[in-house]
């Protein structure tokens, strides 16, 4: 009998707590202060922010694009600087006062081959598949996007310069003086690492990088941008038909920027 009574009491307490919880959930919009809710059942804004559960874009899939660049050094001329001008205008970095220190997201380099042959070529971030800058980054500020573009998350960068030391191509930079006024296309500031973004803001809009467009318009048409994962893209076809290789393939970085006419 006493067992029965305690069982009833336990049950009623449980039911009581359940009802309390139910009532609490029902009063989901309990306002503590303007804009501060005890419980908030989502609402239109939260639903819009969450959106549809889309594909996981942090991981690459065989169907996602893999952006690459082919630079034809036979066409590139030593006197031309169309790609550099375009990059400066698009991303808002000034002419370097001290070329050894100041950012030069893209610069012209003269390489000497066997014999007396000399080639001028633009040097920019090679967007490696195995980027040494990303593997040394202590805060994971440098990362490779699913589509292969290597970027710096400047909100995470602590300015340690490890990436600048790790990069074998010397295409990672650090503004050491206050930046006058950043381009709306690319916020930048003193003390955060930066480098070529392959004009990610344009690529996400479906456009070509600024250097590629300018090289085709004012330069010698030496740059070709495209999707390495798409066998039908102009870039894949050009690589298949005429060849091209990344710089320092012995390092095993699998760079996405290919050069033709060296070797």
């Amino acid at each position: 009998m006493s067992e029965d009574a305690s069982a009833t009491r336990t049950l009623s307490r449980r039911r009581f707590l359940g009802r309390c919880l139910g009532a609490g959930t029902a009063a989901a919009g309990l306002l503590l202060a303007p804009g501060v809710w005890l419980l908030h059942g989502g609402g239109a804004a939260a639903a819009a922010a969450d959106g549809e559960p889309g594909p996981d874009r942090t991981r690459s899939s065989p169907r996602s694009p893999r952006w690459g660049l082919l630079i034809d050094t036979q066409r590139c001329s030593a006197e031309c600087s169309a790609c550099i001008d375009a990059c400066q205008e698009e991303n808002g970095w000034p002419e370097p006062e001290h070329p050894q220190q100041d950012p030069q997201w893209i610069r012209k380099v003269t390489v000497r081959g066997p014999g007396d042959s000399e080639r001028s070529l633009p040097m920019l971030c090679q967007h490696c598949q195995n980027p040494p800058c990303a593997s040394v980054c202590p805060t994971r500020a440098t990362f490779r996007r699913a589509d292969g573009i290597v970027l710096v998350d400047k909100h995470r960068c602590i300015g340690c310069r490890y990436c600048m030391i790790a990069c074998p191509f010397q295409v990672r930079f650090m503004p050491q003086r206050p930046v006058a006024e950043a381009s709306p296309n690319h916020p930048r500031g003193k003390g955060a690492a930066e480098g070529c973004t392959l004009c990610v803001h344009r690529v996400d809009r479906g456009q070509q990088p600024a250097c590629v467009e300018r090289c085709a318009a004012d330069g010698h048409g030496a740059l070709l941008f495209g999707d390495l994962n798409d066998p039908g893209s102009a870039l894949s076809e050009a690589l298949r038909d005429y060849g091209g290789a990344p710089l320092r393939s012995d390092l095993g970085l699998a760079a996405r920027v290919h050069y033709r006419g060296l070797s």
Binding site: P34, G35, V36, A45, A49, R57, T58, F143, R145, A146, D147, L151, D153, H155, V200, H201, D204, R205
Partner: peptide, 27 residues
């Protein structure tokens, strides 16, 4: 958003947008 909500949440909102745009490329 509503002004009251934006006043309190704009920093989180912007930080979230930054993450989605920079890391995931969803602009």
């Amino acid at each position: 958003l509503e002004a009251e909500q934006m006043r309190r949440e704009h920093a989180d909102w912007l930080s979230d947008r930054m993450h989605t745009a920079v890391r995931l490329g969803e602009r």
